[in-house]
């Protein structure tokens, strides 16, 4: 059986005044049913763009997207409509992702109306069910988004994404705009839904503690490229790429006696416009050497642990 989602050498370049902006550059991964792929990286590394491309909210420049073995890289209108019933998105900002002129129930039933498969009564019923599932009390159904707090708004967003019963949901930093206490509620809701419905998530975030909690696999992106990908525990216990190491060292530890060594990155983020062929992290990397200006190859030094750094082997030896 083919994997739920396969992305092969996906590229998205934007034309800008200064040249080609490599937003997403040669990303490859597979995602199985019921699993979660965490995508981390700093602002502007292309992680949001990646999610948008998979849903065809943006067109891809090059590469392939396979959903259940079917190529949907350049879908016809019909295929796209079908594909989007299987794939949905939850947005980062629950304030701008909801139409302020539509009430809660109107927002949630919109996908059902558009699908056009159910009768009016069934749609009403299903809307009620969805509100139940995401934990929105029925009394909110005529409320407008501005009357609700961030957590409830995000629940509306989750309900809307669930309405068509998709198999795969792109979660574009769904909790980063919420209070920490509410973040936990929403994440637990999403985990529960995953368990019940066998959903696959692509969880885009820059919050490392969240991603550790929710993901099976984690992909680290830097300037549009995948620099490391590994199972969650493996990545946290044994990061290979210097960028991943620096990222992980930035996670605050709630223990004053056990202070860990923070790796402070030097230098500025390189411009994603017309990047040089070598390692894009080179200018900020403490291990940088002349070989780094060669194109980096994605290797698999350990099973399921991919890393794109020519130094990763040497460093390991040093550590030993």
């Amino acid at each position: 059986m083919p994997a739920l989602l396969e992305v092969k050498h996906l590229k998205k370049y934007f034309k800008t005044g200064g040249g080609l902006l490599h937003a997403v550059d040669d990303i490859t991964f597979t995602l199985e049913k019921g699993r979660t792929l965490g995508v981390v990286g700093e602002s502007g590394c292309g992680k949001t763009t990646l999610g948008r491309i998979i849903l065809h909210l943006l067109d891809l420049t090059d590469g392939q997207i396979l959903f259940e073995g079917k190529d949907i890289s350049n879908p016809s209108k019909k295929e796209l409509v079908k594909a989007r019933e299987q794939m949905q998105i939850i947005f980062q900002d629950p304030y701008s992702s909801l139409n302020p002129r539509m009430s809660v129930s109107e927002t949630i039933m919109e996908p059902l109306i558009l699908q056009g498969k159910l009768t009016k009564d069934e749609i009403m019923e299903e809307t009620g069910n969805l509100m139940d599932i995401v934990g929105l009390a029925e009394r909110f159904k005529n409320s407008y988004p501005h009357e609700l707090d961030g957590g409830r708004r995000q629940r509306i967003g989750v309900a809307r994404a669930l309405a068509l019963n998709p198999k795969f949901i792109v979660c574009d930093e769904p909790v980063s705009a919420l209070d920490v206490s509410i973040q936990a509620q929403i994440i637990n809701l999403m985990l529960d839904l995953q368990e019940e419905r066998g959903l696959a998530y692509m969880f885009v975030t820059h919050d490392l503690s969240v991603v550790k909690y929710i993901s099976d696999d984690i992909m680290v992106m830097y300037l549009g490229q995948m620099v490391e990908k590994a199972p969650s525990d493996e990545l946290f216990s044994h990061p290979m790429h210097p960028y991943t190491q620096a990222l992980l060292s930035a996670i605050p530890v709630p223990n004053i006696h056990n202070k860990k060594q923070r790796i402070i990155m030097q230098g500025e983020l390189t411009s994603p416009i017309n990047p040089k062929p070598g390692c894009r992290f080179m200018d900020r990397c403490r291990y940088a050497s002349p070989e780094c200006s060669e194109p980096q190859v994605l290797e698999e030094p350990l099973p399921n642990h991919f890393v794109a750094c020519c130094k990763s082997n040497q460093k390991e030896e040093e550590e030993k």
């Binding site: 849903l55 900002d93 909801l98 068509l164």
Partner: peptide, 22 residues
């Protein structure tokens, strides 16, 4: 540019409906 327009696209809303309703 609002995200709810993208959300509408993601649930297969047609352009005319997006313009008129959203």
């Amino acid at each position: 540019e609002m995200e709810y327009i993208e959300a509408a696209k993601a649930i297969n809303a047609k352009n005319l409906r997006i313009i008129l309703k959203h």
